[in-house]
Design a protein around this nucleic acid. Structure first.
Lengths: 120, 120
DNA sequence: CCCATCATACGAGCACCGTCGAACTTTGAT
DNA sequence: ATCAAAGTTCGACGGTGCTCGTATGATGGG
């Protein structure tokens, strides 16, 4: 039953818990969005193009590593990003499709709003 | 004791502080949205039609009066709602236009997302 | 094999948030 | 003038969130 990892070939690391699409909760998503640091992570991921993968250190947050880990976990558990181990690095990607199916236009609107505010 | 309140001519009550459109901050908006209770307030206001005014008690939140006051203030200070005294009641209305100018599609997307999740 | 690198876990501190009850103010009606 | 209704203010309490430092674990290269 609970032995689902017959070594997924692609990646050697430990598994990371992601909420299935149907389990993504709006409250959690909004909560995750309501932090400037996390918003900046989403912006950078979006700006890197669709399907782009950036490592945690690539994103270069102005906080300690433990704090960084904390924010990435919040984003992952809210269902906003997908994380995958690649060597010693952990790669992050936006869950654009899942979010678009669940809450059409939401991510776009928020990112656009952030971009717009940046230009004031 | 301090202020005899020189009668603002428009309406009998004293004035309430609202952020001007240009002073509305996205972080504050998202923070305000990230609470189920406040989200439900916005939903009810939106459902009441454009320009609709509902009193605080009309919205009938499942919390004490002081808590209710707190949430309405958060919404007002974030720039999401406009409040006006009308007799003993305080009327609330969505700031649709201002929000649409600042962050096009954002409010719609959030409300639609909430509605969609309600149907799961 | 050892080590540097990337990230996690844990505990702690601190601030903020959501909640309440009680006392008060303002307004309109009896 | 008195009273009831609608909100506000205040202080308090508990929970949660953001932050850090230190110690720990996994990975890949020399």
């Amino acid at each position: 039953m609970s032995q689902p990892s017959p070594a997924p070939a692609t990646v050697a690391g430990r598994a990371l818990e992601h909420p299935a699409r149907e389990r993504i909760r709006l409250d959690q998503v909004l909560q995750a969005l309501a932090d400037p640091l996390r918003l900046s992570v989403l912006h950078k991921l979006a700006a890197a193009g669709p399907g782009a993968e950036l490592s945690c250190s690539d994103l270069d947050l102005p906080v300690s590593k433990s704090t960084s880990t904390h924010h990435f976990r919040v984003l992952r558990e809210a269902g906003l990003i997908q994380q995958v181990y690649r060597g010693t690095a952990k790669m992050n990607a936006l869950r654009r499709d899942d979010l678009e199916v669940l809450f059409p236009g939401l991510l776009e609107a928020v990112l656009a709003a952030a971009a717009r505010e940046r230009l004031r």
